[in-house]
Computed example of a mutant assay.
Amino acid sequence: MTPEILFEDNHCLVVNKPAGMLSQGDETGEPSLVSWTADYWREKYDKPGNVYVGLVHRLDRPTSGVVLIARTSKAAGRLADQFRLGEISKLYWAIVEGRPETDSGEWVDHLEKDRRTNVVRATAEGEGKIARVAFEVLHSEGGLTKLALRPKTGRSHQLRVQLAGRGMPIVGDRKYGSKRLVRALDGEPRIALHARELIFTHPTKGEPVRIEARVQEDWPESAPGWWRSTLGR
C-alpha cells in the first residue's frame, strides 16, 4: 500500500492514507505510515540513518484519508498545539447503517477507552472525556446514509463510537456493530470512514492550508450501482 502525497514542503507532508495501513508501528512489526514516510524521505533527500517523522495525529487502521506529518520538531510542536486547541478543521465522510432523526445537528458524548481491549465506550456525563461532532446528511438510500462529520474533538474511535451508540454503526465496522463487510485495496477489511478534508495553519508561514483527499477504489460508493446493490440493502 502506498500513500498518495497531497502536499509537501520543508516543514510538512500531507498524505492520503490508504485503509488498512497502520498510522504508527505496533507490536506486529507491519509497515506503517511512519515507516513508509521515513523510507520515502531517506530516499528522496539522500539521508541515511534515522530521520525525524512527526506524526501529530493519526487515523485508525481501517480508515482512509488525510494525515498531516511534520518534518521537524519545531513544526510538530506548532501543529500539535493547533490540534490540542481545536484550531484545525477536519471533515470526514461516513456511510452508516440507518439514518439520523434530523438532517443536521451536533452530538455530544463522554467516552472512555479500555486500553487492554482497545475498545471505546460511552460513559455517563462527568466521566471519561467529552466528544463533540457536527453532522449533516448528504444522501440516504436503501437503509444506509452518507454523512459529513466535523469533529470538534479528537478522541480515540470517537466517530465510530458516537455513531454506533446511536444505532448507526459505520458500514464495515464489525468492532462496533456493523453486520456488513467492506474490503480495502489489499483485501483486508476496512470501514466506510474517510478523512476528506483538513485545514490547518502552516507552522512557519502562518497561512491557512486546505487539503482534500479523494476516495480510492475501495470506497463503497466507487462500485457502480452500490447504493442499489445487495450490500446497500
Rank of each mutant, 00 (worst) to 15 (best):
T28M: 05
T28K: 11
E30F: 11
P31V: 00
S32Q: 01
L33I: 09
V34D: 09
V34L: 07
W36H: 01
W36C: 01
W36K: 02
W36I: 03
T37N: 05
A38V: 01
D39G: 13
D39V: 01
Y40H: 15
W41I: 08
E43R: 15
E43T: 12
E43N: 11
Y45F: 14
D46V: 11
K47V: 13
P48T: 04
N50T: 08
V51L: 05
Y52W: 07
V56C: 13
H57Y: 09
H57C: 02
H57K: 09
R58C: 02
R58V: 02
R61F: 00
P62N: 10
T63I: 09
T63G: 02
S64W: 02
V67I: 14
V67W: 05
L68F: 12
L68C: 11
L68Q: 04
L68M: 10
A70R: 08
A70M: 08
R71Y: 10
T72P: 03
T72E: 04
S73F: 03
K74Y: 09
K74A: 15
G77Q: 11
G77A: 13
L79A: 10
L79D: 07
A80L: 13
D81L: 13
D81Q: 14
D81I: 12
Q82V: 08
F83P: 04
R84E: 15
R84Y: 08
L85Q: 12
G86T: 08
E87W: 12
I88W: 07
S89W: 04
K90P: 03
L91E: 15
Y92T: 13
A94T: 05
A94D: 02
I95Y: 09
V96H: 00
V96M: 02
E97A: 00
G98L: 01
R99L: 06
R99M: 12
R99N: 09
P100D: 04
P100I: 05
T102E: 15
T102C: 03
G105E: 04
W107Q: 02
W107D: 03
W107C: 02
V108M: 07
V108I: 13
D109P: 06
L111F: 07
L111N: 06
L111C: 10
E112A: 12
D114F: 12
D114E: 08
R116I: 14
R116Q: 15
R116T: 15
N118L: 12
